[in-house]
């Protein structure tokens, strides 16, 4: 496989990650969100493997495997069972309307492009152009957390942010050290469990996972 082709393949995967980020942003159905999230993890893992292949950094294979297991199978599964147990798989409304959210998302992508422009000029890595996508994924994850009313989708936004950070790490420096990656993976797993517990508590307290309910906790005037 020539370097040219690898770069193009990586570019394609980056584009797919960006696309899934947007899909997460606008999708309303809970299970669809989960599926898209799994796809994003899949593209991420694939991209990591491709970079590992191209650069000869073999620890990236392990990262890739870890990503695939964690983000394509384990986390979606945990969230899936949660959704099932809590019976919350109906459509969820977002705070902003969809076109406005999309426009905001486009604005953020352009903003990320603007931010990473100097890096792109300085870096010599072949993955440098995907840095903007990585940053955009982080931003879009954050935007998703802002625009969603539902705790589960906020958590998925959070996980999508983490995906973006991981992607940024691979595209900025060809991956973090192995130890860090293992640690992050473990953290994520624990986070998912903790979120699960939180969901149960929120659900029993407010009889809903709609975070708008939490406005009741506000100090009165």
């Amino acid at each position: 496989m020539s370097t040219e082709l690898v770069i193009q393949l990586n570019t394609l995967l980056a584009a797919m990650i960006l696309l899934t980020s947007f899909a997460l942003l606008v999708q309303r159905r809970m299970f669809a969100i989960l599926h898209i999230f799994a796809w994003q993890g899949f593209f991420l893992g694939l991209s990591t493997a491709v970079i590992g292949f191209a650069t000869g950094e073999h620890h990236l294979y392990i990262s890739s495997l870890l990503t695939l297991v964690m983000k394509v199978i384990l986390l979606p599964y945990i969230l899936y069972t949660l959704i099932h147990k809590l019976k919350i798989h109906r459509e969820i409304e977002s705070v902003m309307n969809t076109p406005a959210t999309m426009l905001a998302g486009i604005g953020l992508v352009i903003f990320s492009y603007h931010l990473t422009a100097p890096v792109r000029q300085l870096s010599t890595l072949m993955t440098r152009s995907t840095l903007a996508v990585a940053l955009a994924t982080v931003m879009l994850g954050l935007l998703m957390m802002v625009t969603r009313r539902h705790a589960v989708s906020q958590i998925i936004g959070f996980l999508a942010m983490e995906n973006g950070l991981f992607f940024a790490a691979t595209s900025a420096t060809y991956g973090m050290p192995m130890v860090v990656e293992l640690g992050v993976a473990l953290d994520l797993l624990i986070a998912a469990f903790i979120f699960g517990i939180f969901f149960f508590h929120i659900n029993t307290t407010f009889d809903s996972l709609d975070v708008e309910q939490m406005a009741k906790l506000k100090e009165g005037d």
Binding site: T11, A14, A15, L18, L19, F22, V26, M102, G105, I106, V109, I110, Y113, S129, T130, A132, V133
Partner: peptide, 15 residues
């Protein structure tokens, strides 16, 4: 529109 714009952005960012 989003997809088309993403296409354009992808052109500038990635290609």
């Amino acid at each position: 529109f989003l997809l088309a714009t993403l296409g354009m952005i992808a052109f500038f960012i990635l290609e």
